[in-house]
Simulated assay, not measured.
Amino acid sequence: MSRWSFAARLLAVAATALLLMMAWQTFPLIQAEILGLRAKPREITARGDLAADEKSTIALFESRSGSVVFITTVQQSVNAWTGDAQQERSGTGSGFVWDDLGHVVTNYHVIEGATEALVSLTDGRSFRAALVGANPENDLAVLLIGVGTDRPKPLPIGTSADLKVGQKVFAIGNPFGLSSTLTTGIVSALNRNLQVTQERTLNGLIQTDAAINPGNSGGPLLDSAGRLIGVNTAIYSPSGASAGIGFAVPVDKVNRIVPRLIASGRYVSPSLGIRTDPKANEALSARLNMSGVFVLDVEPDSAAEKAGLIPARLTRDGGFALGDVLLAIDGQVVDSPDDMTRALETKTPGDRVVLRVRRAGKTIEVRVTLDVAR
């Protein structure tokens, strides 16, 4: 076979292969075009009824979301070049309708430092809000809006004292400015303490894994009956977004503080007037194998001083003499300063309480009229 004949055959084989490849690639397109003339939407498969828990979640959201509001705050600043005052949006958060008078509850940190707050309802209406009162120690604040007619319903109030770990919970709020967002989860833990600033620790919080993100602050945490059981206030997250660890101020505390903020603009905590220290208390408890709250000092002219409580003291030889050890307040056992704070939070200045105290190896009862925290 000559060299030219071999080349001609090789070219023929290559051409045939190319035609086959083009046909292979083109055939599906031709087939699709032919079939496309007869193509129709596929039949929908019947879904069946929604599951019972889906129905209840939908009903909860539809009945409660209208009571949750979107809060936008504004701060006033001065233009460094012109000296003119100007207002700038400073943040967003959530809140919820407390009563028929137009009071709205939110977190203190949502409105902290703001010169103005705008409250938006789910129906599109917006209102400038007036600050009624604030309680930074528990991260709560109350605003007032002039809703007029067609007011959104207040959320029904539940209880937090009987919450159980594992209960379902639902959070409604405005994470990252996305209004009317529902997330679900469970109660992950109870009575958590969270240090939010150098000076401030929030006590007795509900921990939940319901997704809570920036913008959810101030929104409600609900139980499966749609009752308010907490106010979403903080998250633990290295990234700044939800990591499955959120915290809410329990409703029992909210229901004590909010009415006082509405009535007088401030919440005054009750006080015994004793000085304690968590680390010293823990060390003494371990060293002496003794539970309770060690009274390290008594404030002058305080409820504790008037009741005759005895503080610890240094002896002449440089030793340490133990004073009174607080064991219970009105029957509620206190093993730490945090326990004492939680027990006192259920009281009001002027309340008369019975303290169980260990003094010089004996257990006695002391009656004290609670004072105003200083």
Rank of each mutant, 00 (worst) to 15 (best):
S2P: 14
S160I: 12
V251R: 14
A23T: 05
E33D: 11
E282C: 04
G36R: 06
D330C: 09
A134P: 06
S67A: 11
L182V: 06
I30E: 09
V325Y: 09
V105G: 01
R128K: 12
I71T: 11
A134T: 02
A248P: 11
E345Y: 07
T149E: 10
K347D: 00
G218H: 02
R287F: 10
A141E: 03
T73E: 01
A80F: 14
I257Q: 15
S291G: 10
Q25I: 02
W98V: 04
R275Q: 08
V187G: 08
A130C: 13
E43F: 13
L178Q: 10
I262S: 11
S56Y: 03
I44N: 13
L327R: 10
G124Q: 06
S269T: 10
L355K: 07
P220W: 01
L131E: 06
Q207I: 10
F61R: 03
G185K: 03
L288C: 00
A373P: 12
G48Y: 05
D339G: 12
F96M: 01
A141G: 01
P214I: 04
T122K: 06
S160P: 15
V110E: 04
G318V: 07
D49A: 15
V334C: 05
A280W: 10
T106D: 01
A241N: 15
T45N: 08
F6Q: 08
I206D: 05
P349A: 13
S302R: 02
R9Q: 03
G166F: 05
D100A: 11
L20M: 08
P154T: 00
P311W: 00
L131D: 02
F96Y: 07
G240M: 12
S90V: 08
E62P: 07
D84I: 12
T208E: 05
A46M: 06
W81T: 07
Q167H: 13
L296G: 08
T183P: 07
I157V: 15
S126T: 14
A304S: 03
G185T: 06
T233K: 14
L205T: 13
T369I: 05
D150W: 08
G133Y: 11
V354M: 00
R266S: 14
R89N: 15
F170G: 12
V74W: 09
D162P: 04
K153Q: 06
A51V: 04
N281K: 02
K55Q: 12
T208Y: 09
S269A: 15
I329A: 08
T92A: 15
G124K: 09
L20C: 07
N213G: 09
S77P: 11
G173R: 03
A51Q: 03
T184G: 14
T82D: 01
A210D: 09
I44Q: 05
F96N: 02
L322C: 07
D252E: 13
K306F: 02
I310L: 01
R192D: 14
R374T: 04
R287P: 11
V298R: 01
R256P: 13
S5E: 05
Q332T: 05
L37I: 05
S90R: 13
V366E: 04
A51H: 04
P278D: 02
Q31H: 09
T346Q: 13
M21E: 02
E116L: 15
